[in-house]
């Protein structure tokens, strides 16, 4: 059980990183980015393609993939900022859902439908607790999640750019009237989350089921984790991701329950939605 739970922590770290990205996107540019994991998937696939077809060293290929992920996300952000600046969150999010499908089909066309011959960026154990091995991948993803969440907290709370981003997210028109450049700042947020998501996926993909659909659909458990923080709180998003990964890992150990793991994120989402609705029901019943 403990072995399973710790094995799940690597996935949990990935969920947490993606959940932080989703939370930032929702807070700062008012989009639920369904294509968050898919952009990372395409970036990490490019890295594999570069290694196989150009013989580029692994680190350089990975870097190239990460930059592509950031660029892809920035491009999508540019489109949304240019043509959908005045639309509501629903419309903007629907566009990212379309991009998700587009990226999945595109990667089938470009890279085929088989898992990619990933070579691990990180491999091997980092340390042992009570005889159970914790892998380097686990340490890297969990560390990245915590680091990104802390860095964003500092950025948003303590820096002039962070305050501008918060102003922009609250009242975009008023912010622009005060000279805050909405478009460059928003595109920077898209690029930043694209970069971080691709980095995390590149680290974890070699040790996971890494066909295009599995990777792109990481957005589902990530959304579940982000939902725990109401798509606003970074700490809860990180916690949610880690807990979800650990529970999945533990459940996978049991023969009876192992099928349940695939439905865990959905169960998590439904439970959170019901929980968050309880007050409304009370109010309506008054």
């Amino acid at each position: 059980m403990l072995q399973g739970a710790l094995a799940g922590l690597a996935a949990g770290g990935l969920y947490a990183v993606l959940a932080v990205c989703l939370t930032l996107m929702s807070r700062l540019v008012r989009v639920v980015n369904f294509a968050q994991a898919a952009t990372g998937m395409v970036g990490s696939y490019l890295a594999v393609w570069l290694v196989v077809h150009t013989g580029l060293p692994e680190w350089a290929a990975t870097l190239g993939g990460i930059l592509l992920g950031a660029g892809l996300s920035a491009g999508l952000g540019w489109i949304v900022c240019t043509w959908l600046a005045e639309t509501d969150t629903g419309t903007r999010s629907a566009v990212t859902a379309a991009v998700l499908l587009l990226l999945i089909s595109l990667s089938f066309i470009l890279f085929g439908n088989k898992p990619q011959p990933f070579r691990p960026v990180l491999a091997g154990p980092a340390f042992q607790v009570g005889g159970v091995v914790v892998s380097q991948v686990t340490v890297a993803t969990v560390g990245l999640a915590v680091l990104v969440a802390l860095a964003c907290r500092l950025l948003l709370g303590r820096t002039a750019v962070g305050v501008r981003l918060r102003a922009l997210s609250e009242r975009p028109t008023t912010a622009e009237l005060l000279g805050i450049p909405a478009k460059p700042l928003s595109i920077a947020v898209w690029a930043g989350t694209g970069l971080v998501a691709t980095l995390a996926i590149s680290v974890v993909a070699p040790s996971q089921s890494n066909d295009p659909t599995s990777l792109a659909m990481l957005v589902v458990p990530a959304s579940a984790a982000a939902l725990l923080g109401g798509f606003r709180r970074l700490d809860l998003a990180v916690g949610g991701g880690l807990v979800l990964g650990v529970v999945e890992g533990a459940v996978a150990q049991s023969d009876h329950l192992s099928l349940v793991r695939y439905f865990l994120p959905l169960l998590f989402i439904v439970a959170l939605l019901l929980w968050s609705q309880r007050k409304e029901v009370w109010d309506a019943a008054r």
Binding site: R166, A167, E170, R171, T173, T174, A175, L177
Partner: peptide, 10 residues
Amino acid sequence: EQGRAVFGGL
């Protein structure tokens, strides 16, 4: 602007 255009979260 008309109305109180403060950033409430700031």
